[in-house]
Computed example of a mutant assay.
Amino acid sequence: MRTIAIEEISKKQEFLETMPLSKEELNQAIQEVLKQIDLNMEYLKDKFPAPATKGLKYPVIDCIEWTDGFWTGMLWLAYEVTGDEKYRTAAEANILTFKHRIENRIEVDHHDLGFLYTPTCVAAYKLTGSEIAKETAIMAADKLIERYQDKGEFIQAWGEFNNPDHYRFIIDCLLNIPLLYWATEVTGDKKYEEIARKHFETSIKYVIRDDASAFHTFYMNHETGEPLRGATRQGYSDDSSWARGQAWGVYGLALNYKYTHEKSIFGLYEGMTNYFLNRLPDDNVCYWDLIFLNEAKQSRDSSAAAIACCGMDEMSKYLSDDNSKIYMGATHNILRSLIHNYTSKMHEAGDPVLFHGVYSWHSGKGVDEGNTWGDYFYFEALVRQAKKWNPYW
């Protein structure tokens, strides 16, 4: 496996001196999340929030977006921390919606089946033993591997399958392939894990740059499978590092280590994580692209910060004590900043949990708004610190 640059962490001492979040801080933050979930349950009823807010309110949609699983994932997290059956009832009703979606192949011709079915159906199976949820998640895994390209050994992200213009993968998919590892675990069929490993190996070979930053997307030659070029669809430029993409890398590497135990992942993780941490502004919540530093006139992406916190927490289970202390200090530091500066104690129906995120800067969608994955990963990061948590991923 390849090696990349590993920068020294410039804020190492600050992170080492960060006080861990107290039980009181975590419990209060979780209670604020639950207040918003309760309001949004009534607001949404049997529907879903759009990917991002508009004017800080979520439009209400059917189950048609790549982001719908995050709302159900929040319901499962709420059930775990409270034991309240109302959250389980709502989440289980959603499972039937996801079952209908995959059976009828409604908006599933893309690689985001992991985002859709891991925090929903895999979570349901792990928490309740639901056979319906298990079968639904396996159907989603079967659909996901249909997008595997033998030439190049990757899962095609979007677009018409085999179309040369869409012959590419993106870094986000590192969070989709845990669905495949799980599918092998529960079925005993190695085909899922084999495709997950091949996609992972292709990703780390091409989408991570030598300096430990990441391309958002990488194009392959549709005739030969040879690498063509890295590019962006979400970041500032092809040469910059989109913050959320870098965070997907941090968490994705940790999750792939969880399943593969490939020790060579440690160097990749440290490189990508240190690069991310070294480009944080004073309050340690990143701008939407890591090319922007202190006092840039740009929007933050709180969702990227929350994703990175989940990744650092996950990987800290496997690192040496010295490294774990630094990354956990960074996790608590960033989370505390999110709690105090990026959430609100004033709640109204349709509001996000986490403010100041960016969906797509180039298209102008969800800029300085809330988004569903930011809400979910913020809640997951809090739950990770508040209890011993078995990841859905």
Rank of each mutant, 00 (worst) to 15 (best):
353 V>S: 01
369 E>W: 04
380 E>L: 08
273 T>K: 03
361 W>F: 14
368 D>C: 06
211 D>R: 07
318 Y>Q: 07
189 D>F: 05
324 S>P: 03
281 P>S: 06
78 A>S: 15
214 A>K: 00
249 G>Y: 04
156 Q>L: 09
283 D>Y: 09
109 D>R: 12
158 W>C: 10
391 P>T: 04
40 N>A: 13
372 T>I: 08
337 S>T: 08
187 T>E: 13
354 L>Y: 05
147 R>P: 00
347 H>S: 14
318 Y>E: 03
346 M>S: 14
81 V>E: 02
12 K>R: 15
15 F>R: 07
374 G>Y: 01
225 G>D: 08
54 K>N: 10
141 A>V: 06
363 S>W: 08
137 A>F: 04
44 L>C: 04
312 M>P: 02
44 L>Q: 05
68 D>N: 15
334 I>L: 02
229 R>C: 11
320 S>I: 08
230 G>V: 09
227 P>G: 10
188 G>T: 07
246 Q>F: 04
106 I>S: 06
71 W>A: 00
246 Q>M: 05
326 I>A: 09
75 L>Y: 05
47 K>W: 00
386 A>S: 15
59 P>R: 04
215 F>G: 01
362 H>I: 07
107 E>L: 07
184 T>V: 06
71 W>K: 00
132 I>F: 01
50 A>D: 13
217 T>S: 15
225 G>V: 12
99 K>I: 04
236 Y>T: 11
204 I>M: 10
15 F>V: 08
29 A>L: 05
107 E>W: 05
365 K>W: 12
289 D>S: 10
244 R>E: 04
307 I>Y: 05
339 I>T: 06
90 A>H: 11
216 H>A: 06
355 F>C: 00
133 A>W: 08
262 E>R: 13
3 T>N: 15
381 A>Y: 03
76 W>T: 06
84 D>T: 10
288 W>H: 09
336 R>W: 01
205 K>G: 07
186 V>L: 08
214 A>D: 02
295 E>H: 14
91 A>M: 12
12 K>I: 13
156 Q>G: 10
253 L>H: 02
373 W>N: 02
120 T>N: 10
184 T>G: 09
326 I>K: 05
78 A>L: 10
126 K>S: 09
94 N>D: 15
114 G>V: 07
6 I>R: 07
384 R>G: 03
246 Q>C: 03
101 R>V: 10
233 R>G: 14
107 E>G: 01
178 P>G: 10
392 Y>P: 01
51 P>G: 08
125 Y>T: 06
11 K>Y: 08
275 Y>H: 14
258 K>Y: 13
377 F>N: 00
214 A>W: 12
51 P>K: 11
347 H>I: 04
51 P>Y: 12
84 D>I: 10
305 A>G: 08
13 Q>A: 14
116 L>M: 15
191 K>E: 08
259 Y>D: 06
134 K>I: 09
128 T>C: 05
206 Y>S: 03
29 A>N: 09
221 N>R: 07
157 A>Q: 05
173 C>V: 14
315 M>P: 02
265 I>K: 06
282 D>Y: 12
